[in-house]
């Protein structure tokens, strides 16, 4: 049922700029410099290497389990003690209009610049779990700025990160520092399943064959 959420139809070949975070100095508030540029697939490779490396160095030869509680402790240990330097590259504020959103686009004019499909426009609200549901629900980040109750629906131009979603590519210890939203806005933050493409195709094939067999 959630197969469509796995279908991250993103541009896997374009490169985005990362920021380099110096975790051991993040309490000082110094600006982040530029990290390397990555394609989505290369960033996923990088972030998998980082987590494997942390495991090998800090857990492999111990009885400790690498669970969220222990990683959180590791995180504050790096930040609060100056014994080790730790650098991490964070892919923040990546434009969905360049790389694609992880959500399918509305066909009923519910997000900025979406095409209207006349045949679908007057249909009842799609059922939960269908692909159309994820296109049309106002919990789709492309649509939420334009829902009836949102004043941002009156903004007819796209402003990246405000009414056009941004993507965030994270890695172990990559940090979103303390902040509030600009202009007293709310923010909606979705966590994608983020399967890598070949896995994804496999799931789509399994799903499609099950679907056709029924």
């Amino acid at each position: 049922m959630f197969t469509y959420l796995l279908a991250l139809k993103m541009d896997m070949n374009k490169q985005f700029q990362t920021k380099e975070q110096l975790l051991h100095r993040i309490q000082e508030g110094i600006s982040f410099g530029d990290g390397d540029e990555y394609t989505i697939s290369d960033y996923l490779k990088y972030s998998h290497e980082q987590v494997k490396h942390w495991y090998a160095e800090n857990y492999a030869r111990t009885n400790k389990v690498m669970n969220p509680q222990n990683i959180e402790k590791d995180y504050w240990d790096i930040i609060e003690s100056s014994d080790q330097e730790y650098y991490v590259e964070y892919g923040n504020d990546v434009d969905t209009h360049v790389f694609g959103s992880g959500f399918p686009k509305s066909e009923r004019g519910r997000c900025l610049g979406s095409e209207i499909d006349i045949d679908k426009f007057h249909l009842p609200e799609p059922l939960f779990g269908t692909e159309d549901y994820y296109k049309e629900t106002y919990w789709n980040p492309n649509n939420i700025p334009c829902c009836d109750e949102s004043i941002l629906r009156h903004v007819k131009v796209g402003i990246n990160g405000i009414n056009v979603p941004w993507l965030y590519f994270g890695s172990i210890f990559a940090t979103f520092c303390y902040h509030t939203e600009d202009n007293d806005f709310y923010s909606f933050n979705y966590h994608h399943y983020g399967m890598i493409q070949h896995t994804l195709h496999f799931i789509m094939i399994v799903f499609n064959s099950l679907h056709h067999n029924n």
Binding site: L8, L44, S47, H48, Q50, V51, P68, I71, E72, Y75, T96, S101, G102, F103, P141, N142, I144, P145, C147, E149, S150, I151, L152, G161, I162, N163, V164, P165, W166, L167, Y168, F169, G170, S171, I172, F173, A174, T175, F176, C177, Y178, H179, T180, E181, D182, N183, D184, F185, Y186, S187, F188, N189, Y190, H191, H192, G194
Partner: peptide, 25 residues
């Protein structure tokens, strides 16, 4: 969801992909 003027911050425990946007009432 984060509310107006609500400070928030955090970090990732490993590889992930997020997608975020604003809205206003």
């Amino acid at each position: 969801l984060t509310f107006p003027r609500a400070f928030h911050g955090g970090f990732s425990l490993g590889p992930n992909i997020g997608e975020a946007v604003n809205f206003a009432t």
